[in-house]
C-alpha cells in the first residue's frame, strides 16, 4: 500500500495542535519515533514550551513475556508535571498499550491537569480504550503488517511498512 508522506502529516498535525497550545502546555514524546516527532512539532509550533521524552520500558505490560528491553534510555522530563496540560506524542497508535504505559509513567512524575494524545498515524487495532485527539492520518493495516517512523541522517521523517514474522 501507499504510505502517506510523514513530513506532510507533520504539517497537518502542527496545524491541528496550534490552537490548543497554551501557557501550561508541554510536549512529551515517546521514544523513539514519538520523541523525534515531538522534537519536530516543538520546532514547527514555534512556541516556547517544555519538551520531554519518555522511555516506557519500565512500564510495559509484556515484561513477563519478553523481559526488559535491551536498550533502555533514561526518560527526560525537565519540567514540573503538576498542573500541566500535556500533549503526549507518538508516531503510530495501534493497540494503545504504549499510551497506557506512558500515562502511568507520567503520573509518577506528578499530577498533570490533562493529557491529550497526538499521533502521526492511527492504524486502528485498539486493545485498550485509548483515543487520540490529534491524528495526522488514519490508515488500515492487517495484523501482520507494521508501520514505523524513521529518520534520515538530515532529520527528514518518513514512514515504512514491515511484515511481522509469524511465530
Amino acid at each position: 500500500m501507499e504510505l502517506p508522506d510523514a513530513e506532510q502529516l507533520l504539517t497537518a498535525l502542527t496545524a491541528q495542535l496550534k490552537p490548543h497550545v497554551g501557557p501550561e502546555t508541554a510536549l512529551v514524546g515517546i521514544r523513539t519515533g514519538g520523541a523525534w516527532l515531538a522534537e519536530r512539532l516543538h520546532q514547527s509550533l514555534g512556541v516556547a514550551m517544555p519538551l520531554g521524552t519518555l522511555d516506557i520500558s519500565f512500564y510495559r505490560d509484556d515484561f513477563s513475556q519478553i523481559g526488559l528491553h535491551p536498550e533502555v534510555e533514561p526518560s527526560h522530563i525537565p519540567f514540573d508535571v503538576d498542573s500541566r496540560h500535556i500533549i503526549l506524542v507518538d508516531d503510530v497508535l495501534y493497540t494503545g498499550r504504549t499510551v497506557r504505559a506512558a500515562m502511568n509513567e507520567l503520573f509518577d512524575y506528578g499530577r498533570p491537569a490533562s493529557i491529550s494524545l497526538a499521533v502521526l498515524v492511527d492504524r486502528g487495532g485498539r486493545e485498550l480504550p485509548v483515543a487520540a485527539q490529534f491524528v495526522g492520518a488514519h490508515i488500515t493495516l492487517s495484523d501482520s503488517q507494521n508501520v514505523q517512523l524513521n529518520q534520515t541522517g538530515s532529520g527528514r521523517l518518513y514512514l515504512s511498512l514491515h511484515g511481522i514474522a509469524t511465530e
Binding site: 533514561p74 526518560s75 509518577d108 512524575y109
Partner: peptide
C-alpha cells in the same frame, strides 16, 4: 535509567 527514576516524585516502577 534507574538513576533518573530515583530523582522523581515517585521513585518506583512497576516492573
Amino acid at each position: 535509567s534507574f538513576v533518573t527514576v530515583a530523582e522523581r516524585e515517585v521513585k518506583k516502577v512497576p516492573l
